[in-house]
Design a protein around this nucleic acid. Structure first.
Lengths: 106, 106
DNA sequence: TTAATGTGAAACCAAATGGTATCTCTTTAG
DNA sequence: CTAAAGAGATACCATTTGGTTTCACATTAA
């Protein structure tokens, strides 16, 4: 999807999508399971998942008729990269943070 | 503007606004100075600055007929807070980062 | 095999978003 | 004083966004 920084920031701009990210941080979930936790239709949740996927923040694994959505930690890297570029005064600490993300995602 | 986390994430979701943040990280600027660097009208830049202000990421200081826009580092705190809540595995490093922000903004 | 379950996709809608042009107001320069 | 410079505000516009309803398709259960 080309511009990962933009897609990642855009994915995080919506509160529902940030909630989804937090839920998926606790456990992998199907669309139906996520929909149970929101006051909106499955189609709406699906759209949010597509945006999150474009942002590289989640990955989908097919299991029979189910699709397991799981968090993709390395998708956060462009966001952290941008934060680090934007300002030098917290940079060593942010570099450590980026290393942690890289370790986790391999 | 109530929900700082949402306002900050929303402010960062637009590429022009992220560019503005980067420019203001280098030096304080007026709207006219910022407008010189973009291919859009002053009114459009002004709208972006309003969104950034709502997100707590910039502050405006009146100087005569000019308005000096400057970066407000502590506005990034809700973003970093959210990132740290969302996932534990990089948490000590993120906490260090948050402390750095707090030091810088006082 | 048939029915139920899980998902995807398309058409549609209201509201938000990012931009413009235009007018006004305040402050500074001549 | 008058004109120019810097900025704010409003009305307007096209596109995007976040949601819905509806239909189709694949997989599993009875």
């Amino acid at each position: 999807m080309e511009n990962q920084t933009q897609n990642a920031f855009r994915a995080l701009a919506d509160p529902t999508r940030r909630d989804i990210v937090q839920m998926l941080a606790l456990q992998d979930m199907t669309i139906a399971q996520l929909t149970d936790r929101f006051n909106m239709t499955r189609a709406a949740v699906k759209k949010h998942l597509t945006v999150l996927s474009d942002g590289g923040l989640i990955a989908v694994e097919a299991r029979g008729r189910e699709r397991i959505n799981r968090l993709e930690p390395k998708g956060m890297a462009p966001v952290l990269d941008w934060l680090s570029y934007f300002d030098q005064f917290w940079d060593e600490r942010l570099n450590s943070l980026k290393e942690a993300v890289e370790r986790k995602s391999k």
